[in-house]
Amino acid sequence: MAQDFIELTAGELRLGLSPTVGGSIAHFSREWREAGALRRTHWLRPATVQSMLSGEPLGMGSFPLVPFCNRIRNGSAMFAGREIRMRPNHPGSDSPHPLHGIGWQRPWRTAAASNTQATLQLAVEADAQWPWSFSASQTFNLSTNALTVSMAVTNRDTVPMPAGIGHHPYFPRDDRTRITVRTRAMWEGDQDVLPVALSTHEAVARLAGGTAVADLVLDNNFTGWGREAYIEWSDDANGPARSLVMRAQAPLDFFVLYSPSRADHFCAEPVSQCTDWVNLRAEHSAADLGGASLAPGETLVAEFALLPRWS
């Protein structure tokens, strides 16, 4: 079933999906009437018209991360006797480290859609870059007070496959936007944003106590995540004071915070493995790296929810 855009509605909440643009979320918003006027506020950064027309996932509200999350150093790794040789895939950068997996740059198929639920599917054949065949799915359930996303990736090959899974939400931000997240440690990165050492960086304590997003300039993985992040926005032209809880289930035990300087957005990502985990396995424990080895026919499942609140 080919479908370019899907709109789900539940109460005042709206969810827009773009299956052909990497199986992405185009918008997640609240729409209501106030003093006779239609108003709208966004929980995720809405996709731009240009991104929709050009099919650019980096301009969407969120996109899936399969079959790995974040970067692989130089696109090279060995696993179960097979070699990963991925080419760089960031359209706006000359970095040699491919990122975000494969699913975000492939069109997904709409398997089912109703007013409040949609399921997208993807099938990928093995090639020289990723030498395993796999399939993936996303199911979006919208209620009057929550968006729940269920994900799965299945090894369709004949030997074990490394697997990671997650999502890449972009949240709107201004100088007053705050975030509270409890974690155990942070992976400090090198100049290419690849992890080199675990530390109890000051950001761990600041996030646990709640902090303005603008006060942190980070692009880092965190371990020991409590699987919950709390985001707050003050009242502004787009609506009253509001908040959102992002709540995840295992194996989404890792958290990525991307907070660029002076930006109008930030990313708070629930993921199942840290960056470059396939190349760090010999030096670090599974508790610090995450990641999965899927036997032929085995499926990795994950779920997270976005729960908005407003006054």
Rank of each mutant, 00 (worst) to 15 (best):
P160C: 02
Q191F: 03
P172Q: 09
F134C: 13
R184I: 04
A197R: 15
T154A: 03
D192Y: 02
R176S: 11
V149Q: 10
E202I: 03
Q191V: 01
A203F: 12
N145H: 14
E202S: 15
A205C: 07
R178D: 05
R182P: 00
H167F: 13
H201F: 03
G209A: 15
R173P: 00
V193P: 00
A205K: 14
T139S: 11
D157E: 06
A205Y: 10
M151T: 08
A212D: 02
T144V: 07
T158N: 10
V193S: 11
F140N: 04
M151F: 02
A208H: 04
A208N: 01
P195V: 08
T183R: 06
V159A: 09
G164A: 13
A152Y: 04
Y170N: 10
T200S: 13
P160W: 02
L142G: 07
F171I: 01
P162W: 14
L194H: 05
G189S: 14
F140R: 01
S133I: 10
I179Q: 03
T211E: 13
M151D: 04
R173E: 00
G210Q: 13
T211S: 14
G166T: 06
I179L: 15
L147K: 03
G166C: 07
A163K: 08
P160R: 03
V159K: 02
N141P: 00
A197G: 00
T180V: 05
G210R: 08
I179F: 02
H167L: 10
L194C: 10
G164K: 11
P172I: 07
H201M: 01
D174L: 03
G166E: 07
I165K: 03
R176T: 14
S143R: 01
N145S: 15
A197M: 11
V196E: 11
A214I: 00
A208K: 01
L147W: 05
V159T: 15
E202H: 14
G210A: 09
M186K: 14
E202K: 14
P195T: 10
Y170G: 03
V149D: 08
S199Q: 09
R173T: 02
R176V: 00
G189W: 02
G209C: 08
N145R: 11
D157G: 12
D190W: 05
S137M: 07
D190Q: 06
R184K: 15
H167W: 14
H201K: 01
Q191E: 11
G210L: 04
T158F: 01
V204T: 06
A136H: 15
A205V: 06
I165V: 09
G209P: 02
L198F: 07
A212M: 01
G189Q: 12
R184G: 05
W132D: 08
R176N: 12
H201Q: 04
R178N: 05
V181F: 10
V204Q: 05
L142R: 09
L194V: 05
T148E: 09
F134A: 13
F140M: 04
R176M: 09
V213M: 05
N155A: 12
A197T: 15
W132M: 07
G166W: 04
